[in-house]
Design a protein around this nucleic acid. Sequence first.
DNA 1: AGGCAGGCTTTTA
DNA 2: TAAAAGCCTGCC
Length: 278
Amino acid sequence: MEELIIQINDDFNLNKISNSGQCFRWGECSHDTYRIIAGADCLYITVLDNECYKLECTEDKYNSFWREYFDLQENYQVIRKRIDQEKDHFLWEAAEYEKGIRILRQDPWETLITFIISQNRNIPGIRKSVELLAETCGEKRLDSRGLEYYTFPSPATVQSLSEKELSDCRLGYRCKYVHAAAQAVTAGDFDLNRLLYTDHTDAVAALTALSGVGVKVANCVSLFGLHHTDAFPIDVWMKRILAEHYPDGYPYERYTPYNGIYQQYMFAYYRHKEKRYI
DNA sequence: AGGCAGGCTTTTA
DNA sequence: TAAAAGCCTGCC
């Protein structure tokens, strides 16, 4: 088995990332090991001492895929230190508590489908549907420990599914949204990768043109799938946070271009305080 | 025109 | 039974 030890001298907490609600195919194997499925790849990662981690992959695979996936070229300590403890105590406290969250660089297509599925559902339900979709039409592979996993299916593969096959993934009324998105991407009517190079406002405008993609889901895709770190998803929890802690308006300008990263700290922290882990 | 009520699949707690 | 990282349609 290929193994690699890396040291990460920055905020990086697997448990925080896993619980942050941006990824739905992370599995906790033990208190210190996670199995991560992303796109067509699977990785076991184990926490060691002194900011060191053991990755069950080759150095080439780390350099070509996982390093970028974890967004390791970005310095989150620097981003976190921009918060003024006096001016914005709630955000400061949230960031201190949720230190270790990073915005993963997930695949745009996988992120789009995942967040269409996410609407009006809790996290266990989202995980289940994503897994069923992968099992239905993803590719079966073996991970580094010889266990099976399913890759996330391509747009063409999802587009080829029947109504019943999608329905059996427990997608409910979202079936037609998932199918339409797969259709648009497969036909070339919708160029997701182009949106990697626009700003988040343009990306949100393009994404909301898709049926079943509203402003909230579009901002999630922009943030988690296109890595537009200024995207700021507002769901029911963020509405509560804004009403409770920013009754006179939220200072977006102060935090550009990292509004989305700060949003993640607040979202996770607030849910933690409300004891809503799922 | 733009805001709002009601409906939607299914799971989870 | 209500709520869940919502969105669409139809009505006013």
